[in-house]
Nucleic acid binder design. Structure first.
Lengths: 209, 209
DNA sequence: CCTTTAAATGAACTATGTTCAATTTATCGG
DNA sequence: CCGATAAATTGAACATAGTTCATTTAAAGG
């Protein structure tokens, strides 16, 4: 079969992304194969490779959509006055997202690309940065107005740390104490880290002790 | 070919593990395939499956060895008096391990087993717990003698958080500010979290603000 | 030396991502 | 309306995976 007029190029792209997302949600990354997605949308495997360089890029696009969803959930939780309160609300929203869209969240991090693959595209990093921006705005009051760098770094530390807790928690790689404790751990992290920021003003960048 | 007497069953196991470790160190998880390991040790693929249930279990054993190495590096850094000093030394050793044995460290976390796989064996979790024990002993002075649980939880929070920083840093998934900043982030985490523990004594388990 | 038993083998099976010559259809010039 | 051109779609084919198991081979026991 050749050139159909069933759908435009862009429509097929969207269908493929939607199908990929569905597969991800129900069966995780393992369920997301080129042939299955192609079947889902009623096109042949080769067609997928007209629209995406490879499966990795398809997944990166799905992950981009996930980051947008995450932003939409997190952004409204920050009111910009009290860091502790904002962070608690934000963390709750994050954990809720993780509980509801666990497989999508998982793909954000489980998807490891080959070492020789192109670096993550700028538009993707921008989406990550946008989510980080929410966290930055919550932390903002803790830093002097001119210390944007310190705030940005603190946001990255918190974000990455939180990721570690959720990630190890979900994959069972950490002998965890109770089932509830991923949330407990996340709370412990945020509260103590922020308390630390308050006690050690501005020089949060650490020299020898 | 059938029953050789070149090596005992246990010898082949060790050869396979050593070969797997070598492959991991040079090319990461992608370079560790059943056929290649079999070739390396001069046996056929099938033989590997006499010794290990499957490739996953082979990798779990290599990871176990990595955890032992890590323990050996971390354990001597804790002197048991000053938490801040101990943690700084321990963190330095951890980052050194990461720099030198990055691929082995990576396999500890990159290796995601299928959802239907058996849970991680107890002996493996025990090795994880042993490494965590080092961290616990460094944090010990910060907690009342009877609060073992609080100390254990703090150790897990720190450990998992640190993992998040290193993991996201290495995979380029976090738009990082400078090249140096993984170490900076790790220091920021440890120092602020510990400062937080000091300021908010014992009730580090977090209720509503 | 023959029998028994255990180890070692490697072809075969299923499934993956990816490629590309061949095919089919739309589009456009006349 | 037709024929040529261009574009999209196809699916068989390739390389590589993990895993299995009937068959082969060598050691051990009597």
């Amino acid at each position: 079969m050749g050139r159909r007029s069933d759908h435009s190029r862009e429509e097929i792209r969207q269908m493929a992304l939607a199908a990929a997302q569905r597969r991800l949600e129900s069966g995780g990354l393992a369920a997301l194969t080129a042939r299955k997605v192609a079947d889902d949308i009623g096109y042949a495997v080769g067609t997928l490779y007209n629209l995406f360089d490879n499966l990795d890029m398809l997944i990166v696009h799905v992950n981009g959509a996930t980051l947008d969803m995450l932003y939409d959930e997190l952004a409204p939780t920050v009111r910009g006055r009290n860091p502790e309160a904002d962070l608690a609300a934000m963390l709750a929203a994050y954990l809720r997202f993780l509980a509801e869209k666990g497989q999508l969240w998982g793909a954000l991090f489980d998807h490891r690309r080959a070492g020789d693959a192109a670096p993550l595209p700028d538009w993707y990093l921008a989406k990550v940065a946008r989510v980080l921006g929410v966290l930055e705005s919550a932390l903002r009051p803790l830093f002097p107005t001119d210390d944007t760098a310190g705030c940005a770094q603190a946001a990255r530390v918190l974000w990455a740390s939180l990721h570690g807790i959720c990630s190890l928690g979900e994959t069972g790689k950490l002998p965890v104490i109770t089932a509830q404790s991923v949330a407990d751990m996340a709370n412990s992290l945020v509260e103590n880290y922020v308390a630390g920021l308050r006690v050690r003003p501005e020089n949060s960048r650490a020299e020898g002790e």
